[in-house]
Design a protein around this nucleic acid. Structure first.
Lengths: 347, 347
DNA sequence: CTGTTAGCGCGTTCAT
DNA sequence: ATGAACGCGCTAACAG
């Protein structure tokens, strides 16, 4: 940009040292390990930093120390509200701290996860966060080779790479469907978009419970690999209603689909919850105020982001958490959409 | 993590050079500027890279060249769908390319923007993207000092720092309110959450048009600095209806608020669009399938992200776009929520 | 077209 | 508690 090539690229520690009347290394120590420096020198260095406006060069730090401030975060989507909430947790937890998050988006492609991991690996990250528990063998290998703390988020499982935080998706699916049965629904369908590993496990939970109750019927399951949205949810619901006119409830893979399903019912003049009950997943704000409000499984994405950062920090500081696997659990938020006999108010 | 300290930290260009039987700099050139190297050497270097599995060290590259692959992106929120869409555009446009985006979240605080800019400045970014056109003087100063291409997104204005892409928020507000007047609505309110600069400008557009039509009434304007959401939209609508029972339409700051307003009407038994008309903003998927579907102003966040990256790349390559300020425009998506006499179908 | 030399700014030895 | 010297991996500058 500037045509004038100044030889001096940067304001360096040496400048600070000169200004403070100490050696460069002393200046460095005053900033990085203030405890082992006399309070006098420390004050002088701090003053010099202030007057000069010195800021360390992260590239030089990373090169010299062979480590970085980078926290690599790999998620399958940014437009999905779930991951947006998770990112917010990560960002808030890292703000003003030792680490800088950098996000990679796989768009739900496993091969892209491996590519991103390779990319991150070149930067010697201080820690890594990956989504889910279904990493490819190659991805697991790279992660282990990185020799940094790793957190798998969103789910919990029995074979952590390092640490985990999330909830049991299958169990959450079971809880949702049990609730529908408890409310007296019997012809219970499943609406699933995207069908990533989490969606598959919720479906497994759905199957478990219905099979145990003798209510399972494969024709009530409608899924698609397409990205989930309310409009897609509406189309899936229309398909399901066409295939199974006696349907009396649906468990939806997520709240977008559930909201779309509700709108489709309204369009067809089907009353919710008296004719058809609806359960969503994730408990987005909007489903708590829709008319009727929609029963949903609350998950804790924001906290998951915050905790993942805390876990990595603790591991780096040599205080690995007592529990390498944290099951955050979930809460079934019961609302109007599953109140077959209107007794309760809004959620 | 590993207790064994290997002296050799990394697989370096020297290793590649040795393997290929050339000098380090030749190896470097073969990878960075393949054109100025004999095809024979190039092939040998490429083979060496392949067999060794060499990957460059970004920290060393950044240090030696005093530039980086970093694209600094500053947004006010990640949980807002608008910015999620924008991020998706940025991520898709940078995937596999020369740049790596890094996102900073101001949470709508101007001071935080300055802090983030300072942080980014230490990394010598290749380009910067900032949200809106209301940067503080200090923020503008830092951006200019960075001496890299800068794109301001979401809005357009007359005093770009460098480049701009977005739409005229005031004009979009005007278009929305004009449509309501055209449909025969007269007591038109404004519902605004968050009230960031974009929301303020939409409100200004609302005021313009109503004042020109002699329909302005300050008591019809309800705003709050709280983060927008459907539930908040419902509360704002309840407040407005209580204050102005003769209300016959609302222009909502965004679609979340609009959806909440619709639900509040349904809760109170107010018919939309016959008794009250509703216009949203941004055209989220969900408002196209709600019952009734909601008229909204479509904006182009994803494309904005893609284009911002293209503009920066072009500027770096010495082909600055002919237009430094790109007005993407907007489209009013007319749907059921403003059809006072039900004539049209869904959008 | 290729090689040599000399740093980039910082952290890590070793000394004192 | 402080300092000198060296090197991290790469690229810029100048030779040839």
């Amino acid at each position: 940009m500037s045509s004038k090539d100044t030889r001096k690229q940067y304001l360096t520690l040496n400048d600070v040292a000169r200004e403070a009347g100490v050696s460069a290394i002393t200046a460095s120590r005053a900033l990085r390990t203030p405890d082992i420096v006399s309070s006098k020198t420390r004050a002088r260095v701090e003053a010099a930093v202030e007057t000069l406006g010195y800021v360390p060069n992260p590239a030089a730090q990373a090169l010299a120390s062979a480590r970085s401030r980078l926290l690599g975060i790999i998620i399958p989507s940014v437009t999905n509200q779930i991951f947006a909430d998770f990112m917010a947790g990560i960002m808030d937890a890292t703000e003003g701290g030792r680490f800088e998050p950098q996000f990679g988006n796989t768009r739900y492609r496993m091969q892209r996860e491996v590519e991103l991991l390779r990319l991150f690996a070149t930067q010697r990250p201080a820690g890594m966060v990956v989504t889910g528990i279904d990493q490819s063998p190659e991805a697991r290998r790279i992660l282990k080779q990185m020799a940094c703390p790793v957190v798998q988020v969103l789910e919990v499982g029995s074979d952590p790479i390092d640490m985990m935080i999330g909830c049991d998706q299958t169990e959450a699916g079971r809880a949702a469907v049990r609730h529908l049965i408890d409310q007296g629904y019997r012809r219970i369908g499943f609406l699933g978009a995207r069908m990533d590993p989490r969606a598959q496990r919720r479906l497994a939970g759905y199957r478990d419970v219905l099979a145990a109750a003798g209510l399972d019927d494969p024709s009530l399951i409608v899924t698609t690999p397409q990205p989930s949205s309310a409009s897609l949810g509406g189309r899936l619901m229309a398909d399901l209603l066409a295939a199974a006119p006696d349907l009396d409830a649906v468990f939806c893979n997520n709240d977008d689909v559930a909201l779309g399903a509700l709108f489709e019912c309204q369009r067809q003049g089907i009353r919710v919850p008296s004719q058809v009950g609806i359960v969503g997943f994730n408990d987005l704000d909007v489903v708590s105020v829709s008319v009727p409000s929609i029963t949903s499984v609350r998950t804790h994405r924001y906290d998951m982001g915050v905790e993942a950062v805390r876990m990595i920090e603790a591991a780096i500081d040599g205080n690995p958490p007592a529990m390498a696997v944290i099951n955050q659990g979930f809460s079934l938020m019961i609302r109007q959409s599953t109140q077959r006999r209107p007794e309760n108010g809004a959620g």
